[in-house]
Amino acid sequence: MRWPFLVPGRLRANSVCAIADVESGGVGFAIAELSHTRQEPVRILAYERAVLPHGERGARHTASASLGLLSRVGARVLHSFAVSQAAQKHGHVASAHVILRAPWYSSETHRNDSVYPKAQAIRQRTITELAEQAIRESAGSSLPFESAVLRVLLNGYPTGKPIGKSAVELSVITLSSHSSAKMNARAHTAVSSLLPGRDVRVHSGMRASLAALHEILTRTNTFTIMIVGADMTECIVVRKDEVSQHVRIPFGTSAVIRELSGANGLPDETEHLFKAAFIDGEDSKATSALREKLARAEIEYASRFGAALGSLAERRRLPNECVLITHPFFAPWLETFVTRIDFSPFTVTTHPFNVEVLQNAHVAHAVAWSEDTPPDVAISLAALFVRAYVGK
């Protein structure tokens, strides 16, 4: 059996595609123009993100409700694009890509090494065979729905262009992702029904995030990633470009909304107060009361994070560099929250995490949003991944 491997290349022409970002309790949907060269940014032409009301969530119903939300949001975005000048200028949607976020998938990395008696030229077939062997040996009876080569090392050093080079030692790091066949098929069907006749591909959130972060974070290859969604946080530990550990924490931004406003969502006045307290830094009786209320809830949040990260650190201490990915509205509070928790017993240096919030500034050179649309970092990362995938 052959798996699709990620080999970034050059897009032959500008193309328009749909990108669906499906998490537990929330959905993002965008129409993007993929530039034919990497010197031009991906352009987001239409976009919407929505979160499920608290009453529609639950272990048995969240998947169905999220897919229903995907259909509704996708239909609105496609209609908005169809009647816009952008559609007349850029043409129809040619394909679609669905990114499944936690908890709808699981991923693992594999490394396979080959040492030769003497230096020999590396061929694509050799890399593919090593990758397939590693995945096949670890998969058992459950084949992944997606696999990709993350890194190739020649004589111990990573290289982006290994084909034709000579080496005595070849190492291939691959990522394989699994999801329930039912969830995968239902997500595919939901988007296919919106775009009949188009090619629809389903990808794992880890693959999309790692591919995009590799393009953005060039200063380091060892870090801890925290992706905070509506209902769940995914922590991924990357060491020398290889995923070594990951864990999921039952906490998301919806917990903050429930704490502040109950099950009916965040009222406008509370939203403005939250912004004043944590984004604008306003100091008043009202903002102080809100901070105190959230501080009491943080004790439980910190306990969940501590238990999860402590379990990872039992095996090996965590990198201090921490990349935080979440909705921009909650980012300032989350950055303070993660920085304030004493994670020093779990880190390599025994110092707290050095937290960097992934913001639009990190991707503005590669993903262009219209001035009247607040950028969505998760969609930006997905768009960068799709450009690399389509350009293979």
Rank of each mutant, 00 (worst) to 15 (best):
P4S: 13
L6S: 08
V7T: 10
V7G: 05
P8Y: 03
A13Q: 11
N14A: 15
V16Y: 05
I19R: 02
A20G: 07
A20C: 06
D21N: 04
V27I: 14
E33D: 09
L34R: 07
S35M: 10
P41M: 03
P41F: 01
R43G: 01
P53R: 02
H54Q: 13
G58A: 07
R60Y: 09
H61E: 14
S66D: 05
L70D: 08
S71T: 05
A75V: 00
R76G: 07
V77Q: 04
F81H: 15
A82K: 10
S84W: 09
A86L: 07
A86C: 05
K89F: 08
G91D: 07
A94Q: 11
A96L: 02
I99R: 08
L100E: 09
W104L: 04
H110I: 08
N112R: 13
P117G: 10
Q120K: 15
I122Y: 00
R123C: 11
T126Y: 06
T126K: 09
A131C: 06
A131E: 07
E132L: 11
Q133L: 10
A134E: 03
I135N: 08
S142M: 10
S142N: 12
S142A: 14
P144D: 00
P144H: 03
E146A: 12
A148Q: 10
V152I: 11
V152E: 05
G156Y: 00
G156D: 08
T159F: 06
T159A: 05
G160R: 15
G164L: 10
V168E: 15
E169N: 06
E169Y: 05
E169Q: 14
S171P: 05
L175T: 00
S179K: 00
A185T: 11
A185K: 14
T189H: 15
L194Q: 02
V202K: 03
A208I: 06
A208G: 06
S209M: 15
H214D: 12
T222S: 14
E234Q: 13
C235P: 01
S244I: 13
V247D: 01
A255Y: 12
V256W: 09
S261W: 02
S261K: 03
S261T: 03
G262W: 03
A263C: 02
P267Y: 01
P267G: 04
D268R: 15
T270C: 12
H272K: 15
L273D: 00
K275M: 06
F278Y: 07
G281C: 01
L290T: 01
E292D: 15
K293E: 15
A295N: 13
R296T: 08
R296H: 12
E298N: 13
Y301I: 04
A302Q: 10
S303C: 08
G306P: 00
A308C: 05
S311C: 04
R315Q: 10
E321D: 15
C322M: 14
V323H: 14
T326H: 00
P328T: 00
T336C: 09
F337R: 00
I341S: 03
V355E: 06
L358E: 00
Q359Y: 06
A361N: 10
A361K: 11
H362G: 07
V367D: 04
P374G: 06
P375V: 05
V377G: 01
A378I: 08
L381E: 01
A383G: 02
Y389C: 04
